[in-house]
Design a protein around this nucleic acid. Structure first.
Lengths: 157, 157
DNA sequence: ATTTAAGTGTTAAGCTGCTATACACATATA
DNA sequence: TATATGTGTATAGCAGCTTAACACTTAAAT
């Protein structure tokens, strides 16, 4: 039996790669949240960010999501057409716009939260069976992986 | 000190989500492999799959990558234009094409392997410091997560 | 104070990578 | 032999991004 468990960094990375792709694919599905309006991934992604951080400008969002201002502006335009977000002028800076969710936007935000809970819930039972040190390890691992990716990202510039 | 370490499933999922997005973003960067030719993510992804599994048809690849045959056909067309892959007729089925890497294709494949090793290598030192049970746990976790995502994916159909 | 530089958001063109659809052809099945 | 299924291709269209040019505002430099 060649059961000596050869778990290479490579095999973990491969496994992660597959999972990340599947996750991405799942997340990319357009879905209806609350209102009967269908939201695409970039739209719900924006709503998520706006709902979690009040008083963001277009540039702020651009920085948080790590995409260009143009991309944010375009998606915001669609969200405004769907009456899910609005912009108000920053009182301290005329050229700056503060983005906020409308009532319908909050509806969608909350519906997405609930969807997320259902997703997370699938893990809950598994999680409850885990030692806390394993959970801590997982958290640490993800953090290290993220730092690693950030460093790779900076490298290419 | 509120150090009681409240690690919720949600926070792990959030963390994973961020990491997955960053990974995806990094992977999406077009890069040069071996030859001076720039390869886009879908192209290198295909080369990876073809290099690892000999004798694949278009439909096979489509199944492995979980995209439509049309998508595979389109990307293969680009790869053929770049002289990285060729198709030969399946002797047992005229309507079937077997895809293979050219010499240049193998060059790109190997260069990508080396790139991958460099990526994985960033982990190696971290990995060597880990207990084997932690590594096993990580592998198990990824597997469970993948199964979970697969089930969610089937659900929406 | 005026010029210059930097920051803010928008728009248009162009790209990747995918799907859906229609198609031509080959093979398997009734 | 007719019909259904499988195999690959081509086209149109869409999401989501980038780049670049733009108009405008605010901050900094002289």
């Amino acid at each position: 039996m060649k059961q000596k468990q050869e778990v290479s960094p490579r095999s973990i990375v491969e496994s992660f790669k597959r999972v990340a792709r599947k996750w991405q694919k799942l997340e990319k599905q357009p879905r209806k949240f609350g209102t009967a309006i269908e939201l695409h991934s970039s739209e719900i992604h924006l709503i998520e960010e706006i709902g979690e951080n009040e008083g963001l400008s277009v540039t702020d969002i651009s920085g948080l999501l790590e995409v260009t201002k143009g991309a944010v502006s375009q998606t915001l335009k669609k969200l405004e057409a769907k009456k899910l977000t609005t912009k108000k002028e920053d009182p301290t800076n005329t050229s700056r716009a503060l983005v906020e969710l409308t009532a319908r936007g909050w509806e969608a935000f909350n519906a997405h939260e609930r969807w997320h809970e259902a997703m997370d819930g699938g893990f809950r039972s598994y999680f409850l069976g885990l030692d806390s040190d394993k959970i801590m390890f997982l958290k640490e691992f993800l953090k290290i992986f993220e730092t690693f990716l950030d460093s790779k990202d900076r490298l290419k510039e």
